[in-house]
């Protein structure tokens, strides 16, 4: 539906001057991106249905501020996108899923229990939730640092195809593990 809309707008513009409100240039590509994303978001929100988890807003380092900025820009995009109404639903659903935990709570609990040396060891529910938060911060931090590493590489004059590489992770892993 949205691509068709955009195409119609383009052809109209070609035919003659007709009033159309300004729209973001990258709208069609974004729309297709959300279309791809839609099933994934549904899945993560369904499996990780844990409203108790807040988004990690107050974060430590500058990389995370960048991440936040990026998300703010995303929200701005949202506002623009609302001009073309049809995509609105999936767009508004998206920030909620980025709030959810990268590791589902059940999986994390299983992994912890598998790794206890003493099978009688137990863990409180509150402690479990806190470990979930801890691992969420760990994963987000790893991703943010990898992104930062990529940007630094780009600034140093390297060629980049916009792909996060294993080398980025290799560079950041030692410090990351020391920090956690």
């Amino acid at each position: 539906m949205p691509p068709k809309n955009a195409a119609a707008a383009n052809s109209a513009r070609r035919n003659g001057p007709q009033f159309k409100p300004p729209r973001p240039v990258n709208a069609p590509t974004q729309a297709s991106a959300t279309a791809q994303r839609a099933p994934a978001t549904k899945k993560t929100t369904a499996s990780g249905a844990r409203p108790a988890f807040q988004r990690a807003t107050e974060i430590v380092s500058s990389e995370d501020e960048q991440e936040e900025d990026a998300e703010d820009e995303d929200i701005d995009d949202d506002d623009l996108m609302e001009i073309d109404a049809p995509t609105r639903d999936t767009r508004t659903a998206q920030p909620a899923s980025s709030m959810s935990n990268p590791i589902p709570a059940a999986l994390l609990a299983r992994l912890l229990y598998e790794n206890f040396e003493d099978s009688n060891t137990q863990i409180q529910k509150g402690a479990m939730n806190l470990v979930g938060k801890y691992m969420e911060i760990f994963v987000r931090e790893a991703f943010a640092r990898a992104k930062n590493e990529r940007e630094m590489g780009l600034r140093a004059g390297g060629i980049s195809d916009g792909f996060l590489q294993v080398e980025d992770l290799e560079k950041l892993a030692p410090q990351l593990v020391l920090d956690f």
Binding site: I103, L108, L111, L112, Y113, E114, N115, F116, V131, Y134, M135, F138, V139, A142, F143, A146, K147, R150, D161, G162, F163, L164, Q165, V166, D168, L169, E170, A173, L176, V177, F180
Partner: peptide, 23 residues
């Protein structure tokens, strides 16, 4: 951005090790 499958694999390995250590 994009991430290579190898990146995701390596990150998985890192997170798995971290979980094991944490446990």
């Amino acid at each position: 951005l994009n991430a290579t499958p190898q990146f995701i694999g390596a990150l998985t390995e890192l997170v798995y090790t971290q979980i094991a250590n944490t446990a």
